[in-house]
Design a protein around this nucleic acid. Structure first.
Lengths: 140, 140
DNA sequence: TATTAAGTTGTAATTGTTACAACAATGAAA
DNA sequence: TTTCATTGTTGTAACAATTACAACTTAATA
């Protein structure tokens, strides 16, 4: 189910995050490009359109959104933090050949895990690595 | 089941990785401290004992071991790569208060995931975030 | 419209990691 | 055991992602 900008604006308001032009653009980019972009990708794409845009702003925006739970931070490779507008339960698959990150449905909620009594779990992440079908076909 | 150094030495030989003094020490540290250390922690601990030890060596050693599958790379926070000598199926829990990373048993192999037909999965990672029992008790 | 609190910008600092070239150690062959 | 080629180690410098910070700008509310 896709969220409209109105929904997003309401969410922001609710979390006391001001709806600036830059933040709107970042959110717009994330919703139109749900392919888990890096800060650099967002910057490169938006900079021509908003020449004054600074990377610092993108970082602070994403941190605010993540804090508010409107965006999820994906950490698969240590040197490239990615951001995901989809907040519902799903896993990520990173192709080690082409670098693409795919979403996949996964029943993370019902994953059997022992030894966690007394732990307060706020966040669950699942990611796989391997070779995607495209690269498998091309590189064989 | 704990692996002896002989096992490790045999594994290294099998993978054509030379058993240098430094590598032995790094492996020894990892087996004795299975608390998912960072490169910096390993360096700080081993440096007094081996004054000539360089961080570059630790990086290259860990990369070689990871490549050979003798060590697992844990990427939870983007700015701190951690290393795990345990290679069997298990999840990680990171306490957002104290930063400790706990192991927990999890049946990752049988996690239900759709939409991955045609994908070659080489590596599965599961991590949770939240508050550990200790911090829950102290900070309430 | 004025005011205040919050967001943005650019630069500089910080940090984790890698590249590289000189040197040292290892393992196998003679 | 000695020799030799290959591989590992070291330290410095480069690199890249992220954050700190101070000046400036904008947004929301009265």
């Amino acid at each position: 189910m896709k969220r409209s900008f109105d929904d997003l604006a309401r969410d922001l308001k609710e979390k006391n995050i001001r709806l600036s032009h830059q933040r709107l653009k970042v959110l717009e980019y994330l919703t139109e490009n749900p392919n888990h972009p890096t800060v650099d990708q967002i910057y490169t794409e938006l900079h021509p359109e908003i020449p004054s845009l600074s990377k610092t702003t993108i970082y602070s925006t994403l941190n605010a959104l993540a804090e508010a739970g409107l965006v999820r931070v994906i950490t698969i490779e240590d040197n490239e933090t990615r951001y995901d507008i989809r907040t519902e339960d799903h896993g990520h698959f990173k192709c080690e050949a082409c670098g693409t990150i795919y979403d996949f449905g996964a029943d993370i909620g019902s994953l059997k895990a022992d030894d966690l009594t007394g732990f307060e779990v706020n966040d669950k992440h699942v990611y796989f690595k391997g070779i995607c079908p495209q690269c498998h076909k091309n590189n064989n």
